[in-house]
Design a protein around this nucleic acid. Structure first.
Lengths: 197, 197
DNA sequence: GTCTATAACGAGATAGAC
DNA sequence: GTCTATCTCGTTATAGAC
């Protein structure tokens, strides 16, 4: 018999699922303990049992999101080899998030960055660092194999891709229009597949 | 002797300046009437005299921002003729905002979109519509004169530029690193100046 | 136009029973 | 683990004096 730790049980998982969706749609500062508790079907006090405070819940949120994202990147590395296919799959993650009427969790939190507790800030930066590093490696490999073409360093190209996806998502959500992101992705992939003049 | 209207005096302008800076750094939901009043040096009650409520203040904020932006676009049209120079000047506006440690007001509000009163939502969409239309015209002109090159329609290219700038800003702010945006701008301008293979 | 004072509500958080 | 009850604070907003 093992004693489950706080923030790790089945209820905690439901709390995280609910909080994640709410934060991705409204932003961290517009989501309250009362909102989450009501949707999960428990009281605020019970929520405080699972996550001591909002800062702790927020950090757990980002860390779980990053873990899921990292797992998705590893899956891409397992299943695909060509750089263009990998980048397409990467962009597909963003499209799927937007299809669910959500903003990227860390893109949303990036906007609120200055108001967030530092554990959350560090977790957010970490998320983008991991994304950058993964994309950089993929792009670098693609350049060597001449299957991907871009200007500047692989790191710079990686940053451009992340920025373009996050920004396209941000604006597409205003119109509830997934095609805005999809078109950006298509243009990006097309540009990447042609040699730079 | 004309009677000044509420929201139009010198104090109202100072309120808007302060609120604008606060919202661009923290987000609308993280800025309170108390914050603004304290920085301006008046009380919350006086603030309510100038702007009935937070929704009205927010809408005034976006509309003034849009008016300023529109004026800047007209100035670019007056001073510059070549498409690449115009796009560079356009991107320069974003760089200047970030240099001041701010996010684009409407980019910030885009994240919080779902939680904002509908007058603000409409004003935000209007801001992006104006930006898109202006960029589309500039890109279209550049394509005809063969000084700008891009794939797809001018409208699609305009959307990509806006998304890239907003997203690059969003992420650059995490690192307080203006060069991240500047490099994105440089890459964008370089790509735009070369014929697409 | 600006103030003091206060209303009315929601926020995050805690104590202690079950 | 979850509850009721409560605390304290911050929020938007209003009333009415100056």
């Amino acid at each position: 018999m093992t004693t489950p730790r706080r923030g790790s049980g089945a209820t905690a998982a439901r709390v995280l699922d609910t909080a994640e969706r709410l934060v991705q749609t409204r932003g961290f500062n517009a989501v309250s303990y009362a909102d989450i508790a009501a949707e999960v079907g428990i009281t605020k006090a019970a929520l405080h049992y699972h996550f001591h405070g909002k800062a702790e819940l927020g950090a757990a949120l980002v860390n779980r999101y990053t873990a899921r994202f990292t797992a998705a990147l590893e899956a891409i590395d397992r299943d695909l080899t060509a750089t263009p296919a990998k980048i397409a799959a990467y962009a597909g993650i963003y499209v799927d998030v937007l299809r669910d009427h959500r903003m990227c969790l860390c893109g949303m939190l990036a906007a609120e960055y200055q108001t967030l507790p530092s554990p959350m800030q560090n977790a957010i930066v970490n998320f983008f660092d991991i994304n950058e590093a993964w994309l950089e490696a993929v792009l670098d490999d693609g350049q060597q194999k001449e299957s991907a073409h871009y200007r500047g360093s692989a790191r710079e190209a990686a940053r451009m891709i992340i920025g373009s996806l996050e920004g396209a998502m941000l604006v597409a959500r205003l119109h509830d229009d997934v095609t805005r992101l999809e078109i950006t992705v298509d243009q990006m992939l097309t540009t990447l597949s042609h040699p730079t003049p």
